Simulated scan of single mutants.
Amino acid sequence: REFIDGCWRLAFLDDMVCRHELDGVVIKGEPIVFPPKKESIPYRYKLFLEMYGEDTAEVWKKAYNKTWKRAKALRGK
């Protein structure tokens, strides 16, 4: 249960960080456009379940903490 809840939190944090870091970025003349959060966050959740489902708790915590630090740094901006 902790892992499932953590994947939801990670999906939310990752979505927030990516939207902030990539807002206004243009690649090859095309602006980056995000889907609505109601689509993006569940997609990220499923992705993280697949990505980390077979990893150790240590690997999972490291990935989560890295994203948490990025999100926390955005608060100060």
Score class of each variant (00 low, 15 high):
residue 64 Y to R: 00
residue 13 L to A: 07
residue 3 F to L: 10
residue 14 D to W: 11
residue 19 R to N: 09
residue 12 F to T: 04
residue 40 S to E: 14
residue 70 R to A: 01
residue 57 A to T: 13
residue 41 I to R: 06
residue 74 L to V: 10
residue 57 A to P: 08
residue 48 F to M: 01
residue 17 V to P: 03
residue 76 G to A: 13
residue 15 D to N: 14
residue 21 E to Y: 13
residue 52 Y to N: 09
residue 2 E to P: 09
residue 45 Y to R: 06
residue 64 Y to W: 06
residue 27 I to K: 11
residue 46 K to Q: 15
residue 17 V to C: 03
residue 54 E to Q: 10
residue 77 K to C: 01
residue 15 D to R: 13
residue 53 G to L: 12
residue 49 L to H: 11
residue 31 P to L: 04
residue 16 M to V: 02
residue 6 G to I: 02
residue 40 S to W: 09
residue 64 Y to G: 01
residue 10 L to G: 01
residue 44 R to G: 04
residue 46 K to L: 13
residue 21 E to H: 13
residue 18 C to P: 00
residue 45 Y to P: 02
residue 9 R to P: 05
residue 24 G to E: 02
residue 16 M to R: 05
residue 20 H to W: 04
residue 64 Y to Q: 01
residue 20 H to N: 06
residue 20 H to K: 06
residue 65 N to K: 10
residue 63 A to Q: 00
residue 54 E to F: 03
residue 71 A to E: 10
residue 49 L to W: 07
residue 12 F to W: 05
residue 52 Y to A: 00
residue 12 F to Y: 06
residue 24 G to Q: 11
residue 67 T to Y: 01
residue 71 A to D: 07
residue 32 I to A: 13
residue 48 F to L: 08
residue 47 L to M: 08
residue 7 C to P: 03
residue 47 L to N: 00
residue 32 I to L: 15
residue 8 W to E: 03
residue 63 A to C: 02
residue 55 D to R: 04
residue 7 C to T: 04
residue 57 A to N: 05
residue 76 G to V: 15
residue 29 G to W: 14
residue 12 F to S: 10
residue 23 D to G: 01
residue 63 A to E: 02
residue 53 G to D: 07
residue 51 M to Q: 09
residue 8 W to R: 14
residue 57 A to W: 15
residue 53 G to H: 00
residue 37 K to E: 07
residue 11 A to E: 08
residue 18 C to I: 07
residue 3 F to H: 14
